[in-house]
């Protein structure tokens, strides 16, 4: 597509227009799927609690998210009088923007990636570490006690789990020998016994896959680690003072982050856009279909956990991050690199 526009508009402008269209082609479906995913989250949650869930707006209530969006859009934006106005409005924008930034390096199919850079995984780590600021700034700028507590909790939690996520990613990178996400997906082709396209099928990497799933729950502050918005303690956490579109931006950003983490789970350990088994007829199905299937499966797990697992205490959360995940993932780096030294590189 870039070539087409470059031939039509000249090198510079063609590149610009093509990339603008590609960005919209990623961002708009992500936003649309966020709306759908919120509906599914509520449906799954309701089903597990033997309720009906949203069922009024549209067939099966499928338009509920859009109705909610229209509702918040029409609401008045209330800014607390003692809030730090500029930062108060900046925080949801940061959260929302950062949630969309990471999608630039996600491979949706063999050649379907916006920025095929060789530090792709590091880019995702860098961008997701920026996500803390939206929460911290929101909590501080609200000039209110509960949001501030929530912001402190959130930043401590995100930083703690980013450490173990970093180490888990290192094991995958060691096995692949590249930070490029497409290379990581390609390396999983026929990885397990010559026909399963999963890193998770590998006995050495499977514990890391489980830990990554749990860490991604903590990183996105989903249940059972949703201490940042523990409604029994902190009202609604850092979003307490927000209303209207500012609130909606937080909401969208949060779910876009959840989707991103589901995608990362799929890409890093469960083969990304590859079909589950290395069997020729399965490749007839476009890769993006497999990726979406895997993302949906992980999103179902996220909702399932939210519906069934009670919330952790704060000290338990910190203990899990620092005293369990950190040592285990560190040990696994030694195990994986040792195994690779033995088998792949020779001692």
């Amino acid at each position: 597509m870039t070539e087409f526009f470059q031939s039509a508009l000249g090198t510079g402008w063609g590149w610009f227009v093509a990339n603008l269209i590609l960005i919209l082609l990623i961002a708009l479906p992500v936003m649309l799927s966020v709306a759908i995913v919120i509906y599914f989250d509520r449906k799954i949650w309701a089903a597990m609690a033997l309720r009906r869930g949203p069922n009024v707006v549209g067939p099966f209530g499928i338009l509920q998210s859009f109705a909610d969006a229209a509702k918040v859009f029409l609401q008045e934006t209330i800014i607390p009088s003692s809030a730090n106005k500029g930062l108060f409005l900046l925080a949801p924008i940061i959260t929302f923007t950062v949630a969309l930034l990471s999608w630039a390096v996600i491979p949706f199919d063999q050649n379907m990636v916006l920025a095929d850079i060789n530090v792709g995984l590091l880019y995702i780590l860098a961008v997701s570490s920026l996500g803390v600021y939206g929460v911290v700034i929101a909590g501080w700028a609200s000039n209110s006690k509960y949001p501030f507590f929530s912001a402190l909790r959130a930043s401590a939690q995100m930083i703690s789990y980013e450490v173990s996520i970093g180490f888990i990613i290192v094991t995958v990178v060691l096995w692949t020998g590249s930070f490029n996400l497409n290379a990581i997906v390609e390396a999983q082709r026929g990885h397990g016994l010559g026909f399963v396209n999963w890193y998770g099928f590998n006995l050495l990497l499977f514990p890391m896959a489980v830990m990554f799933l749990i860490s991604s729950l903590a990183e996105t502050a989903r249940a059972p680690f949703d201490l940042t918005e523990a409604e029994s303690e902190l009202v609604a956490g850092y979003q307490t003072e927000y209303s209207s579109m500012a609130f909606a931006l937080f909401w969208l950003g949060e779910y876009a982050n959840v989707l991103l983490m589901c995608t990362l789970n799929a890409v890093l350990f469960w083969g990304g856009w590859l079909p589950p088994v290395d069997w020729a007829p399965l490749y007839a199905v476009p890769g993006i279909f497999w990726l979406i299937l895997k993302i949906s499966a992980f999103f179902f797990i996220f909702s399932w956990v939210k519906a069934t697992v009670p919330r952790y205490r704060y000290d338990q959360l910190m203990r899990l991050g620092w005293k369990v995940f950190l040592p285990i993932s560190l040990l696994w780096i030694f195990l994986v690199s040792g195994y690779l030294m033995l088998t792949r590189y020779g001692v």
């Binding site: 850079i117 060789n118 530090v119 590091l122 880019y123 780590l125 860098a126 961008v127 570490s129 920026l130 803390v132 600021y133 911290v136 501080w140 501030f148 402190l152 930043s155 930083i159 980013e162 970093g166």
Partner: peptide, 25 residues
């Protein structure tokens, strides 16, 4: 130097500056 750039963001922006912000707040 994209590797150094990413490390700068991860380490300084993502961790060190957050602690700074914590203290100052």
């Amino acid at each position: 130097a994209e590797f150094i750039a990413m490390l700068l963001v991860i380490v300084y922006v993502g961790a060190v500056a957050v602690l700074f912000l914590f203290v100052v707040m």
